[in-house]
Nucleic acid binder design. Structure first.
Lengths: 341, 341
DNA sequence: TTTTGGCACTCTCGTCTCTTGAGTGCCAAC
DNA sequence: GTTGGCACTCAAGAGACGAGAGTGCCAAAA
């Protein structure tokens, strides 16, 4: 649908726009990138491209600004080519191995690393999958009717929740409940044992059935695929961007980042399939990204789904961002750090 | 040092400035607040007040803007008077009791409540005190050489850290270490038993002394008075403020809020004494607050120090902010929620 | 001695106009 | 199909100007 030359023009416009942030004119294209074609020819192509929705004009006598459709082509072309890894980032990742960090530290550190390398907002997240197997659960009694529920997943990931029981729960009872849950559920896919386990517990331990029900509900919630844990880093970077000197757009993205519910929705939406997913600005109006783009690298392991992400302006350096994300991602896989161990 | 009338002028200027955000002129003061004095007289007073450092002029022919010195007087006068509590906020706090929330939830919820009520950034934090007594420690074995260290303080506060041991640590060994620590340290002030405990452990359990050393170091770090845990809410509110349409100042405060280390330094500095502490803008240049003010309400209980805070523009509605902070604070105390129980 | 009205002066801010420069669209020639 | 040329458009910046808000100071009143 695009001729070879139109494709070149689009790519040149996106490239120039990413680097200058200004609307791109036909003359500068002809001088800098497409020396063999004259400005007038480029103008003709531009008129067609505008009609096709790849570029727009802020006002009649201005240059052209690429739309998300144009950015999409640009990003796809990057993804097709080979990227080189950043050796410095890879080095930094070795520190993690040296420190024998746990999974949570791995996520935090990765997100910090990414944010610093790309000068954008980085996030790392993980959530259980439906087929998650639990290693075991444990209750840490806090006082007569409070206990900390610990759910250890296969891998080293740990979820936890403080429970307030409706009646007194002595330590022995809690241990008993934990023992039974572990006997049945340990090492098995949660969604297979769940219902049976619930029935079993409620029938066996009738005198504390209310507490068992509570515990089961909470374990279920902790293991739900919706239950992402987030680590966000580098929000202040987006204030440095020259494009966002007007506050309104910042407002939107900051609210998104601060509200875990909204963030979770977004991550769920765009990390559904494994690998690298890129959402550009308002390409998907539902995203709420507005003038920002998001890159998600996600992977479903045995029991958990892990996501690394970057959120930056639409006009970000995708090449650098993708390279950084892939470097960190590969570093984690190599060290066997994805989903813990 | 200030005459009665000068005091009135300062108060009126601060009041008007808080509500309009514009430099305040002598004429509007005379009309709105000090009808019995003429504008010319106010001008004379203003000249003196400027010399004394209570107000400044952005430029020759503009009105006066109060300095932090003037805000200080204003805030002190609010603190002297009686404030009324917000009944709506108090109601909301009852929900906490109904939910029998744990301490962490209490902190998170309080901070959300405060932020929404005042439209500023709210934070809640807690840290152990030197005299903290630990209820007990527990190790949750994760794999052959990883375990989750749980430190339960008196009250319901829990600190935790994943440990990577230098050698294999079977569950029994971990339980043994925990048992010994608890036997000696449970219920006693940590700073009294600490050194003895360390000696004892290293002498008794020589074959895993390296692991014991590690565990002791981590417990010590978790119980250190420096070890604040933070919950921050409502960062997006500060973008709504009309005063901060230039990004530079936002940058500073956002970096502060995002960097736990800096935040911790600030909270330590200004919550040293119990009760309500207010820091106004650049009153203390060390604070890094710049164009923002911070209100901290802090309380040292038996084992932990709890802090609720608000961070907003210097020109914030102190009356409302103080009232909200006090309402939430009192609500927590009444429900017995400060430091857990 | 303190307070007040009056007046000249200063500075910001919004509006208007003008100019400049970048860029387009179209047309005729190649 | 491609190109150079030319008229046209528009944004952004500079300068001029008036309105408005506010001050400082002085001399008269209290």
């Amino acid at each position: 649908m695009l001729t070879e030359r139109q494709y070149e023009v689009v790519m040149a416009i996106v490239f120039e726009y990413i680097h200058t942030g200004e609307p791109v004119g036909s003359r500068s294209l002809s001088k800098k990138y497409l020396t063999r074609i004259s400005a007038a020819t480029i103008r003709n192509e531009m008129a067609d491209l505008e009609e096709m929705g790849f570029i727009t004009q802020p006002h009649t006598s201005a240059g052209r600004v690429p739309t998300s459709k144009a950015f999409r082509i640009y990003v796809d072309s990057i993804l097709e080519g080979k990227r080189q890894k950043s050796p410095e980032l890879a080095d930094r990742l070795l520190d993690l191995k040296r420190q024998r960090a746990d999974f949570e530290q791995v996520l935090v550190y990765s997100s910090q690393l990414l944010s610093r390398a790309t000068q954008t907002v980085a996030l790392a997240a993980s959530a259980p999958l439906a087929q998650v197997r639990l290693e075991r659960v444990e209750f840490v009694s806090i006082d007569s009717n409070h206990a900390l529920l610990l759910v250890v997943l296969q891998g080293r990931l740990i979820h936890q929740k403080m429970l307030a029981f409706p009646c007194e729960m002595p330590r022995e009872t809690l241990d008993e409940i934990a023992r039974r849950i572990n006997a049945i559920a340990s090492g098995k896919p949660w969604d297979e044992v769940r219902d049976g386990l619930r029935m079993f517990l409620l029938n066996e331990l009738t005198e504390v059935s209310e507490s068992c029900r509570l515990a089961m509900t909470e374990i279920d919630r902790l293991l739900s695929a919706e239950n992402f844990r987030f680590f966000t880093t580098g929000i202040h970077h987006i204030l440095n961007l020259p494009d966002f000197q007007d506050i309104g757009r910042l407002q939107a993205i900051l609210s998104l980042l601060e509200e875990e519910e909204a963030l979770s929705r977004m991550v769920r939406r765009y990390s559904a399939k494994d690998g690298l997913n890129i959402v550009i600005g308002n390409e998907d109006p539902e995203s709420g990204l507005g003038a920002f783009s998001a890159l998600f690298s996600s992977y479903s392991g045995k029991g958990t789904r892990t996501v690394l992400g970057l959120i930056g302006p639409v006009r970000m350096d995708y090449e650098k961002a993708i390279a950084a994300l892939e470097t960190v991602w590969d570093g984690l896989s190599e060290n066997g750090n994805l989903e813990g161990r």
